[in-house]
Write a protein that binds this DNA or RNA. Structure first.
Length: 574
RNA sequence: GAUUCCGUAGCUCAGUCGGUAGAGCAAUACACUUUUAAUGUAUGGGUCCUGGGUUCGAGCCCCAGCGGGAUCACCA
């Protein structure tokens, strides 16, 4: 069947993509390399040009051509580089000083498409309407773009039309998103500024950035389902880390005063607008400090970071105006629950708290221990009320198996969480350094696990051995970096602050050949030469939908044609 | 996992009562030497997410599935 000989891949390309491939061939025939190897001697960025604009200055810049306005013998285009855009002016007689005008008429006007990378050399000037521009003397094609960008347009009032907004496409094709949506790029620039500011703050304080294992034999330091993988040579399972806490503490045992790590963590749990299977936490441990010191340190840190990222300590998040200026309010968990529910957890038994939680309409069950119950009450009734940065302190012991017992109350721990807009963004302890207490806490966790709490922790014997050598009093802090940058850039979804958020695999079904139905119809017509359409439809015995799809496809691909006569419709070979 | 909304041209979106598939931008062609959402004229472009059903006839109605968004649940 000759049909199969057709290059079916062409069917998958849009008209514009085919045209660009044809243009590419013409460019090559003309003797221009559409993907030249040589460096291009860029002398300025568009931003640099705007900041120091001098009429007549010679510049050489490179970038993508994002718009083109051709007006006969003169044209304007916009070039976009990493710092922004600038207008470039192409004048036929500037570019082609001799008789031969093909460089302008053919190369510029016909061979270039939106999205192509070009380099231009020229002089700065200002147009009659006051737009800073480059008068192009020479231009070079640097890389041909074969796929049209989803280009939005911005009108005189700055309103964006036809914006590329579909979240699925934006996340799957982040490269295109970044090209056409400047505000998306800004988010990621701020993300990097945040990391840099935090590093700076820690380094200035004399603490050391370290790296610890991502593949761990025991996934410790948090309660979460891990990803499991297999090490072939050792023939053992290894886990992607859910936290790096226990390794950083080992380093404190080893004698470092302060260590921190930006840790990519992996948790095999649900995905939604605040959870991605891999995310970034920052953890820092400082010897000879306690959680009170850490609160001071944290509020100084966040004030510093907010200033570095946004130039102000104030930030808007959805409906809320928040201010990261230190100091932050400090509220114990007992007082928080007392304030919002009127119930005092102090001195209460598990049964009393269970009954109280149930009375508040909270969904409780008997796998929950005392700590979990208190956590549920706090999460349900209190958490959402803390909009401005607030430290919630002194958590129940059972929920915090790595945290030192409170110096004044054996039921509590020296722990705080920092709440912003009702969400937790940081968690810190006076770290538990008593190895015997630590072993007991792990064993309590094991009992919880047997009771049905699938979030309880594994026992890490090597970590206990390290503690037995002695760990100085230490305070540790963990910050959810993704959530923090969400707050600093007013994004409600974690996908917006990750370059490549996890997505379901893309499903693509390409119809590369004729389907069985299409072959059958084609063969029937081939045998008969020509057939009445209704006859053919009956003989094919297909559903209406299936018939419709098949005959449309066959006529579209030029296999068959439908001829209309006065009497009836006839199908023949094309 | 539950609920709900959505899926139509490269992009953003219309699509009436079920009756031959629409617009703007982008593309192609022509005109135009300081425009800027350039403009004017003309042209091409569709697997209406997939499959099944109802119907003389489905983008539209029904069923199932796939994909996505939002809310909730889960997840310190």
């Amino acid at each position: 069947m000759h049909l199969n000989c057709k290059k079916m891949s062409v069917f998958e390309l849009s008209e514009q993509e085919i045209q660009r491939r044809e243009t590419l061939n013409k460019i090559r025939e003309f003797g221009i390399d559409p993907y030249p190897a040589a460096l291009y001697p860029v002398s300025h960025t568009t931003q640099g040009i705007r900041e120091d604009f001098v009429e007549g200055k010679e510049v050489c810049i490179a970038g993508r051509m994002m718009s083109q306005r051709i007006m006969g013998k003169a044209s304007f285009a916009e070039l976009q580089d990493s710092t922004g855009r600038i207008q470039v002016y192409f004048n036929r007689d500037e570019i082609c000083s001799g008789e031969d005008k093909t460089l302008y008429n053919e190369v510029f006007k016909r061979f270039l498409d939106l999205g192509d990378f070009i380099g231009v050399k020229g002089e700065l000037f200002t147009t009659q309407v006051g737009e800073p521009s480059i008068n192009v003397k020479e231009f070079t094609l640097l890389s041909k773009s074969l796929k049209p960008l989803p280009l939005p347009k911005t009108d005189a009032e700055g309103k964006v039309h036809d914006a590329f907004t579909d979240p699925e496409l934006r996340y799957r094709q982040r490269y295109a998103d970044l090209v056409v949506n400047q505000h998306v790029k800004d988010v990621f620039i701020k993300r990097t500024k945040l990391f840099n500011a935090m590093r700076q703050f820690f380094n200035d304080a004399g603490y050391m950035e370290v790296e610890t294992p991502i593949l761990q034999p025991i996934p410790g330091g948090a309660s979460a389902r891990p990803f499991v993988t297999q090490h072939n040579a050792l023939d053992i399972p290894l886990y992607m880390r859910i936290a790096n806490e226990l390794y950083l503490k080992r380093l404190i045992v080893g004698g470092f005063d302060g260590v921190y790590e930006f840790s990519k963590n992996f948790r095999n749990e649900g995905m939604d607008r605040t959870h991605n299977p891999e995310f970034t936490a920052m953890e820092i441990y400082v010897a000879y400090k306690d959680y009170n010191w850490m609160m001071d340190f944290t509020e100084q840190l966040l004030e510093h970071c907010a200033l570095a990222v946004n130039g102000t300590t104030k930030a808007r998040f959805g409906e809320h105006d928040i201010d990261f200026k230190a100091p932050y309010k400090r509220v114990t968990m007992r007082d928080a629950i007392l304030e919002f529910t009127g119930f005092d957890i102090k001195g209460k038994t598990e049964e009393e708290i269970f009954a109280a939680a149930k009375g508040m309409g909270i969904d409780v069950n008997d796998t929950m221990g005392k700590g979990k119950l208190i956590d549920e009450i706090f999460g349900e009734k209190c958490e959402g009320n803390y909009i401005q940065p607030t430290f919630i302190t002194d958590y129940p012991k059972e929920m915090s198996p790595l945290c030192k017992t409170h110096r004044n109350d054996p039921e509590l721990t020296e722990r705080f969480e920092l709440m912003v807009c009702g969400k937790e963004i940081a968690n810190a302890y006076s770290e538990l350094n008593d190895p015997i207490d630590q072993r007991e806490r792990f064993e309590d966790q094991l009992r919880l696990s047997e009771r049905g709490d699938d979030e309880a922790m594994f026992i890490d014997q090597d970590f206990l051995r390290a503690l037995e050598y002695g760990m100085p009093p230490t305070s540790g802090l963990g910050i959810g970096m993704d959530r923090l940058i969400m707050f600093l850039t007013d994004n409600q979804s974690i996908q917006e602050v990750l370059f490549f958020p996890q997505m379901r695999p893309e499903v693509k079904s390409h119809k590369l050949e004729l389907t069985e139905n299409e072959k059958m119809i084609f063969e029937m017509v081939q045998k008969e030469g020509a057939m009445d359409l209704n006859d053919l439809k009956t003989k094919a015995g297909l559903s209406n939908k299936q018939w419709d799809v098949s005959i449309k496809s066959l006529t579209k691909h030029g296999a068959l044609k439908v001829v209309k006569t006065d009497a009836a419709l006839t199908v023949e070979l094309a």
